[in-house]
Amino acid sequence: MSTHELAEVERLRRHLAQSRRLYEVRDDGQGGRHWQEVGPKDFTPLEPEGDPPPFSAKLFFFAERELLFRFDGGQFYSSLPEVRPQAIFGLHACDLQAIAYQDRFFAQDPHYQARRHATLLVGVECRESCSNGFCSLVESGPLVGDGLADLVLVRRDDARGWWLRVGSAAGAEAIRELRLPTNLDGCQATRESNAARVALAQLHDRELLDGVAALNAGQVSADTWETLGTHCFGCSGCTQVCPTCSCFAPLEQVGASGEVQHERVWDSCLYEGFQAEASGHNPSASPGQRVQRFWLHKFGEPFREQFGHYGCVGCGRCDRVCPGGIGVHGVIGEVGRP
């Protein structure tokens, strides 16, 4: 695939926004940073660095509320989302790795795939480590893996312009009209130095790997899990923001006209009721069991074998969102300590 020279990244954004809805992370002025729609006439400079936004891009594909079917009293009707072409602009490598993970998990899910196929992914490679991230330790960044994005932006060291790496036929097609000159001089060297810089900054997080080893060796006692469980408020924040979390629950509502709408909505395995059966039996009744489950799902070897990657992409969002202080550093960072 080709690499091009791009003087002005905003020109690319405006171009892509002409024929699709384009989303980029924006500050809302009230303490929030969200994926917001950006129009083709928006000249706001891209701010590629810094912490990833509170939410990854998973909500664009695995919708938090998705209508699955309707029932009108006589028949069931399946419901697929109405999709329009869209671009997610400025995705970090960790979030692109997470999309790849979910692409695999939801490979046979028509709702996910309908949304996903309508989407162009534009990545940006980080030059510095973000504050809680450890992508280099779980092999999800800072370089965007091959085939994980349609287009990838790499900032030049002199900050005068960019390289644009094309990762797919859809990516090539999307920029064809821009007629960007091909140029990969120095690109690889810059990427390698970015990778080294980020890895160095994340070196202190190597203790997380000890935690992963202890977790997989079954060396974490039930008491330790229960102590951690006492800190779990059951808020569902970790599973909401985790870019690979995929559990859902049904929500069936009857409208005024009697029509039934059956949605699926994001769920969380940290809720006590997640596995509770109608009989009252609950295989994961204690908070410690549920906390353990969550981390096994992220770092357990059997899952890594299934998906070819950890369920954790090292974005650190769970650390920020957990009111009980048991995000990835609070759990995996602790359980590996001798």
């Binding site: 559990c247 629950a249 769920d267 997640f274 596995q275 059966e277 009989s279 096994l296 059997p302 299934q306």
Partner: peptide, 18 residues
């Protein structure tokens, strides 16, 4: 017996280990 919602390995509720 496990709580189940989708039946096709997506909703996540009926996990037993991996």
């Amino acid at each position: 017996e496990r709580r189940m919602h989708c039946g096709v390995g997506l909703c996540g509720h009926c996990y037993i280990g991996a």
